[in-house]
Structure formats: C-alpha cells, structure tokens
C-alpha cells in the first residue's frame, strides 16, 4: 500500500516586530523538506482568536509555511480577547506598527531553512485593509490577499487620525505584488462601490490583480461560526486564493 504521508507542526513562537520588539505568533508548517512558500496572516480588530489560528494550519495542510503574529502582544499579558479589548479602547494599533510587525513576521518565514523565500500577506476585515497597506508599503511582498478589507477608501477624511493617517488606496501606485481581493456583494464596508473604485485604481495603474465578488454573501463569509458563513462562496474563495498563491509564489 502506498499512502501519501501528510504531517504538520503548529506552535506558538516568538518573532521580532516593529522596533525589534519581541512578540508572540502562531506558526504552522508542513513536516517536509520544502522548500515551501510562506503566508503571513493578519488578524481582524477583535484580535488573535481561534479562527485566525486555524488559517495557518489550513495553509500548512496545503504546503505553505504560515504565521499569524499577535499584533496586540505589546498590550499583554492576558487572554487575547482581554488584550484585544484594551486595544479597542485605545482606538486600535497604529498602521506603522502593524507594517513593522508584518515585516518581522515575513522575515521570520524567510529565515526558516525550509522556506522558498517567497512570502505573501493575507488579511481579513481590518486585516484585509492592513494587507493592502503592507503590499503598498513593503517592497518585498510577493503576493497580497485582501479578504473584504474595509476602509481601503476613506471618503470622510475626518476618519483619518494619527494611527491611521492615510487611506491605503492613495498608496496603490507603490504596490508591486499581485493582489487578489474577495468580496461579498451584500457587504456595506467595503461596499460594492468601494470595491469598484479600488478595482478602477488598480486597473488604471496597470497592477496585476484579480477581484472576485460573490452574490449572496456579505462580510466575513469564511467564518464558519457566524451567521454570515456561506459554504459555497467560501469554498470557491479558498480555491481561488490557493490557486492564486500557487501561481504567484511558485519558485
């Protein structure tokens, strides 16, 4: 009998983030010789939850190294939900700090002996916005996955502040990596209008991108523990993301 062997290891690790601060992250990898491409996972506003740790395991299953940095580690110690509550009360974390932390998580993946050197960033909700931003700000991102990132476009400039001083859309000219975006057509933020305007900007600037819009889906339709979960759209979305990453992170 010839069974294909599959195995992975998932564990918490430390990484150096913005300002070289030492933080915690959840890292999953296949137990093979590699080389494997990598994906940094950016969590949403509520924090470093169980769902965000499932994502690196899914990627490890599909042959990627994947790390989900805890972007609120500086507000610890404590349960991630309590730490997230402190960050919410403080108005979130600064974009600059997130960019530094994601940069550190990317470096962590590239340092692994089984890394192919190719690394993508993927985020959900506010993390989708962060993924777009990181793609525009860091020169060595190999692919960007934006899952329903809202506020990429900011029409009301009064919403900009010291922590989030710039709308990511304004930085699109600096985007070097190919980008995939997944959106639900019933989502109020990002609205279909914002998705269309973002696509128009990517097109105008000649960027490599693909957008997938889903009817019958709203915000966060991958989350299996929430009413917005849409199994058909989520399955198709995951297949699109994996095909995109396999194409653009190929050695």
């Amino acid at each position: 009998m010839n069974f294909p062997y599959q195995a992975m290891l998932a564990e918490t690790v430390t990484f150096h983030g913005h300002n070289n601060d030492l933080g915690e992250a959840y890292y999953a990898r296949p137990l093979g010789a590699g080389p494997y491409p990598g994906v940094v996972i950016i969590h949403h506003m509520p924090g470093w939850d169980e769902w965000i740790k499932e994502v690196p395991r899914k990627f490890a299953h599909h042959g990627f190294l994947s790390i989900a940095p805890h972007l609120y580690f500086r507000e610890g110690p404590g349960d991630p939900d309590d730490v997230g509550a402190r960050v919410r009360a403080a108005g979130g974390v600064p974009d600059e700090q997130v960019i530094g932390d994601v940069n550190g998580a990317m470096a962590f993946l590239r340092r692994q002996p089984i890394s192919s050197g190719k690394v993508a960033v993927m985020g959900f909700c506010s993390g989708g916005r962060h993924a777009y931003l990181v793609g525009c700000r860091l020169p060595d991102v190999d692919a960007v996955v934006d899952c329903w990132g809202g506020n990429v476009i900011v029409d009301d400039k009064s919403l900009l502040n010291d922590k989030r001083p710039q709308a990511p859309i304004e930085l699109t000219e600096h985007l070097r990596a190919p980008l995939i975006g997944l959106f639900g057509n019933d989502d109020p933020n990002p609205s279909p209008d914002h998705v269309n305007r973002t696509e128009a900007m990517l097109k105008k600037l000649g960027k490599t991108y693909e957008f997938h819009r889903y009817d019958g889906a709203g915000h966060g339709f991958f989350a299996v523990n929430r009413p917005n979960y849409r199994p058909e759209q989520a399955t198709d979305g995951w297949n699109k993301v994996l095909a995109f990453l396999n194409k653009h992170l190929a050695a």
Partner: peptide
C-alpha cells in the same frame, strides 16, 4: 463601561 457594536470575539454573531 466601554460600549461598542462590532465583530465579537466569542458570540456566534457577525
């Protein structure tokens, strides 16, 4: 009391 309406951490709600 910090009061907000957003994605929850634990409750099975959007």
């Amino acid at each position: 009391a910090n009061v907000y309406f957003d994605h929850p951490y634990h409750a099975p709600l959007d």
